[in-house]
Amino acid sequence: MPRVRVGPADEIQPGQPAFVTHGEIEIAVFRVDDGFRAYRNRCPHQQGPVCTGPVSGTLVATAETDWRLAWVLEGRVLICPWHSMEFDLDSGRRLRAQSERLRAFPVDVNNGEVFVQIGPRDSSAPRRPSV
């Protein structure tokens, strides 16, 4: 399984992913809380460059918020620049459509350097069925 160097960990800031290319696959590495997440830069909707979108929050109204509007997950929601689909940066899952998710890759940090392991697609990860 190829292990690709991304760069120094302290240069990857929240909301500003580092990009690395392996063959035809472009991968973005995001800083999330104290760790890192790596996702393929391709939206499962119409294959837009999802990782080039802004990192923001989202609006919800649930029983937990007493059905009042609440801005949540600030800094954890990746928004595709093509059609504004929202993904949880922590899990890679599309918000409110949990069966769809970004293709994720394992990340490790060694001596302050970030690496991504490029493996085969996780066959258990469902993709958007129509396209």
């Binding site: 979108g53 802004p54 990192v55 923001s56 929050g57 928004i79 620049p81 093509w82 059609h83 504004s84």
Partner: peptide, 11 residues
């Protein structure tokens, strides 16, 4: 009549 929504103006 809508306010701009955070980070959703890229389209």
């Amino acid at each position: 009549l809508d306010p701009p929504f955070p980070d959703r103006g890229l389209g």
